[in-house]
Design a binder for these strands. Structure first.
Lengths: 181, 181
DNA sequence: TAGTGTGTAGACAAATCGGTCTACTTTGTA
DNA sequence: TACAAAGTAGACCGATTTGTCTACACACTA
């Protein structure tokens, strides 16, 4: 049930992530998904609500993917290695579930919405917090700054890989630095 | 001379950085700067050319600011401390030359322009490369990954500070981690 | 004095934006 | 079979987008 609704969300997510939210109009989502405009507005009361739904879908996909990547870690060093190797695969488009790499959808979207109090900006922030909690759950040592260091380098790796286009060796450097702590 | 041209660039930069490039129309820049549309198009042949000019001005301001922050460093540890303390001041809006903190203008703009071959995307990438070269120039040790670690954590600190809004203690953690290398 | 920049104000064009609405069709179920 | 829900196509709305164009004013210089 609600097949049209899901089709709209997945089409919107794909186009938003690929091109940026403000560069994609409602009409293009409708044309590509083949859904009628009336149907869209019966499911989502505005474009921003659809953006939120796309963010939610991306969040669930990303969390599930990350949890899987970190499922069998037996030490903090393994967490670091598997996390950044997984990110490296993402940067190199070897993770089809995450789509063609174009940076972090939440960072990109937050950059387009300047009002920090908006639902969209707040959701982007919450996503980062949940990813942090997931990584924290996997860590065992009580190293005071390890979690922060991992999260900061993760954000740095994603943006560096996207903006400079040279993501292949960024993650291996993160692993070396973090494992030296 | 060319006072109008400079006024247009600084107004555009301010509005673009504050709101995102795609959220600001030409007409708003004209209204706020008080310049006529004809004048704008006699100086810039399109909006994208104006965006490029704004990126260039931001680049020069940022490089000059950063060079000043790192002017009297006597060791790599001092480079790390002064760099991230300066970033922390920026995040806390204590650096008026850089304007109200809303993340990195180049990351934000790259997020809005999906075509990686465009002049705008390439300029954003080049800016990051030049900042990297500036930091490299200040470092003296031959630590194999120090430069990379600093640059990755710098990007991570900027995006973390912007997206999560909690930038105050991010930089101090960067300093601790990097000085432990 | 006459001519040439460079500026202004703002109408205008063509496209697109998000969003509403009418009129009709399909589909699932009681 | 009959009815209600949910879908379709697409015209339409007002606002906004980038960019062009006309008509005119001012200032500097030959």
């Amino acid at each position: 049930m609600n097949k049209k609704r899901e089709l709209l969300i997945s089409t919107a997510l794909e186009l938003f992530y690929e091109n940026g939210v403000n560069s994609i109009g409602i009409n293009e989502i409708l044309k590509i998904s083949g859904v009628a405009k009336r149907t869209l507005y019966s499911h989502f009361e505005s474009k921003n609500i659809l953006v939120l739904a796309a963010l939610r879908q991306r969040h669930e996909t990303f969390i599930a993917w990350l949890e899987e990547q970190l499922s069998d870690t037996k030490s903090d060093q393994e967490v670091i290695k598997q996390l950044f190797n997984a990110l490296g695969n993402w940067f190199d488009n070897k993770e089809p579930r995450l789509g063609n790499f174009r940076g972090c959808f939440f960072i990109n979207t937050a950059a387009e919405f300047s009002d920090k109090g908006s639902d969209i900006s707040r959701y982007c922030s919450e996503h980062k917090e949940e990813v942090r909690l997931l990584i924290q759950k996997k860590l065992t040592s009580d190293h005071p700054h390890l979690l922060d260091a991992i999260c900061i380098m993760k954000e740095g790796a994603i943006t560096t890989a996207y903006v400079t286009g040279r993501g292949s060796d960024v993650t291996s450097k993160c692993i070396k630095v973090l494992c030296a702590l």
